[in-house]
């Protein structure tokens, strides 16, 4: 099946890109790795007049040290992130999350910026035009009702990126370029938790960088993901855990979940539940309960909401125990293989 007609624009700098966006905002769509947008174009979920291809903006690729933390260009591929020794060492939870995204081929294409801005997903939305026409359109695209929560007017399509929960735990900030210059926002203020208006990014704005603070560098972390196959698939539930310890006790902690709400969400009360304590099975389970209570999965994907919520509880418990067992005094294993791409 072919793609709808559009004009392809290929800016070489961020300034050129924001200029093009300012000019064509309402009729344009941004493409970076293309792994999310191209299949959606094929399904006629978007029909932009202009496609702004960011791939030629060299400035937005790569990982640099900055203020003791890291500055990651939005066009950095997920493979580059997975293979970065700095990320594996300082921010292991991001390394783990990046490593589980889709498949190696898709990670060679997909970018961190694209993973953050990933469109929300639903069984009733990510389908061909013919499928959607036959089964009835939905609120998110072309229709006025929700098949998942009948009678409701909110879109519940699930945010299904793997790296954002890790980035939320690490207190990442993002840089956004627009007609008035650039602004920085904490990632935790970027998402809306509304499926059909998922993020606070104006149509004339562009995500340019991800900034990881020095504060969370070195915290141990674990990412766990539920999916049908061990590769290629989007998460149907995902959880990220980070812990900072002093001696055997937890000094600080964060848990974030993905694929079970229209946004990736930080679980409230985790630091309070864990701070000053030594992690054991019982405490880990309490944190699991907190995470499960934050999860509001609906019938947006192939597995039942009950199962997905239960797996959030189980994975959280296991991930907390695992993160607590990592010896922070030892240097962490380096990722395999030389770093390439970009």
């Amino acid at each position: 099946m072919s793609l709808p007609d559009f004009q392809l624009l290929r800016p070489r700098t961020v300034a050129e890109a924001t200029e093009l966006l300012a000019k064509h905002a309402a009729n344009a769509q941004i493409v970076a790795g293309g792994t999310d947008l191209i299949p959606s174009l094929r399904q006629r979920l978007f029909a932009p007049r202009f496609l702004i291809d960011l791939r030629a903006i060299v400035d937005l690729r790569g990982i640099r040290a900055r203020d003791g933390g890291l500055d990651i260009g939005a066009l950095t591929t997920l493979t580059t992130i997975e293979r970065s020794p700095e990320i594996a060492q300082k921010y292991p939870v991001l390394h783990q999350a990046a490593k589980t995204v889709a498949s190696p081929l898709l990670r060679n294409m997909g970018t961190i910026g694209g993973n953050i801005c990933l469109d929300t997903r639903c069984l009733w939305y990510n389908q061909s035009l013919q499928w959607r026409q036959s089964c009835g359109f939905c609120i998110k695209k072309d229709g006025d009702l929700c098949h998942v929560a009948p009678g409701g007017s909110k879109c519940w399509a699930a945010f299904s990126g793997d790296t954002p929960p890790a980035l939320l735990c690490l207190e990442a900030e993002i840089e956004i370029a627009g007609p008035q210059g650039t602004r920085r926002v904490p990632l935790s203020e970027f998402y809306t938790n509304v499926g059909d208006a998922r993020m606070k990014l104006q149509n004339n704005e562009l995500l340019t960088r991800v900034l990881l603070p020095v504060r969370t560098a070195g915290w141990s972390g674990v990412y766990r993901k539920l999916r049908i196959r061990g590769s290629i698939d989007y998460p149907l539930a995902g959880i990220a855990v980070v812990l900072k310890r002093s001696n055997r006790h937890v000094a600080d902690a964060r848990v974030a979940i993905t694929a079970v709400n229209p946004a990736p969400l930080l679980v409230k009360g985790v630091a309070r539940a864990l701070a000053g304590r030594e992690v054991n099975e019982e405490i880990a389970l309490q944190v699991g309960e907190l995470a499960a209570r934050t999860a509001k999965p609906l019938t947006t994907s192939a597995l039942t909401p009950e199962y997905r919520r239960e797996m959030i509880r189980v994975f959280t418990k296991r991930a907390v125990l695992e993160a607590a067992a990592i010896d922070q005094s030892l240097p962490r294993a380096q990722p395999r293989g030389p770093s390439t791409v970009d």
């Binding site: 290929r10 792994t35 299949p39 291809d53 493979t79 081929l105 060679n108 294409m109």
Partner: peptide, 12 residues
């Protein structure tokens, strides 16, 4: 680097 040619625009 291996990539999927069904998900790439030729002009890109």
């Amino acid at each position: 680097v291996p990539v999927l040619s069904c998900t790439l625009l030729a002009a890109s």
